[in-house]
């Protein structure tokens, strides 16, 4: 378990509920520093919620989320503001500010958190855009970009402050194969080059397995399996195998719970 000698995020006994339903119940997750960690699971299991809890946008019912010793759910506004400087987040839809150009989008976090002179901001923005291959697009508006390009700009924005932690919310959803390949490589490459830790929330198994160093599978309000990609391939739990192989029927049934099929049909007479 050499992964966990140095962890950046330590989630302990996290419980989060919506109404009567538990999204997470006493869940423990540790995110190793400097690695790519995948968090996978079927839709609706609260993967995005987990990212928002880490980002401090949602408060859990109980439990702690330690980022380098700061317990995020219990921080005040001001401290949260400072902690967020260490995080970058890539939203599912990219979430570029539609009323600013690509350049201004990437410069936005810099202008908020730093008092750097304008020419320095310009250099940093162009460097980040160069890293995602879109320096030439810096004067375009977000509406002029394709979906894949938009997500790369959002990635440049997420890393503009050189955060210690970058979170990706479903980065591969709805991308064409080329854009998907570009993103996979980019995430891997940036993680190595910049030395930050990455969390990828996704249900795209192949892509996530190819770049993640460690993977958690969450379902039923908790972690059902975790390990390196190789370990998970060997996992013999039926639920894990169904998810990893994408089988239509298994512990997660194909049929929504219903009455007996025959009696239902006969009732119509």
């Amino acid at each position: 378990m050499d992964f966990f000698d140095d962890i950046i995020i330590d989630i302990k006994q996290l419980t989060f509920s919506r109404g009567d339903r538990y999204i997470f119940k006493n869940m423990d997750i540790r995110i190793p520093r400097g690695k790519v960690t995948g968090i996978m699971g079927p839709s609706g299991t609260g993967k995005t919620t987990l990212l928002r809890v880490i980002g401090g946008q949602l408060k859990p019912d109980s439990g702690s989320v330690l980022l380098d010793g700061d317990d995020i759910p219990h921080l005040g506004r001001k401290e949260l503001f400072n902690v967020r400087e260490k995080m970058g987040m890539l939203f599912q839809s990219g979430a570029l500010f539609t009323d600013m150009s690509v350049f201004e989008n990437v410069a936005f976090p810099l202008r908020v958190h730093t008092k750097l002179p304008e020419d320095m901001i310009r250099d940093i923005v162009l460097m980040k855009l160069q890293a995602v291959g879109l320096r030439g697009a810096s004067e375009l508006m977000p509406s002029e970009l394709s979906g894949g390009m938009g997500r790369r700009v959002a990635l440049a924005r997420a890393i503009s402050l050189d955060p210690a932690l970058v979170m990706y919310d479903e980065p591969f959803t709805g991308q064409d194969p080329i854009a998907m390949g570009v993103l996979v490589n980019l995430i891997k490459m940036l993680n190595q080059a910049l030395g930050h830790s990455s969390i990828i929330v996704s249900h795209d198994i192949k892509e996530t397995l190819s770049i993640a160093d460690y993977i958690y599978i969450i379902a039923d309000a908790g972690v059902i399996a975790h390990g390196t990609p190789a370990q998970l391939e060997q996992n013999d739990s039926a639920q894990v195998q169904q998810f990893m192989k994408g089988l239509p029927d298994g512990p997660v049934p194909f049929h929504f719970p219903a009455n007996n099929y025959e009696t239902d049909l006969m009732e119509g007479r």
Partner: peptide
């Protein structure tokens, strides 16, 4: 509403604004 739907409000909050 569109800013909310496209997560612009959330991402602004994550950036710390």
């Amino acid at each position: 509403g569109l800013m909310k739907t496209t997560e612009q409000l959330s991402s602004m909050e994550m950036i710390g604004v």
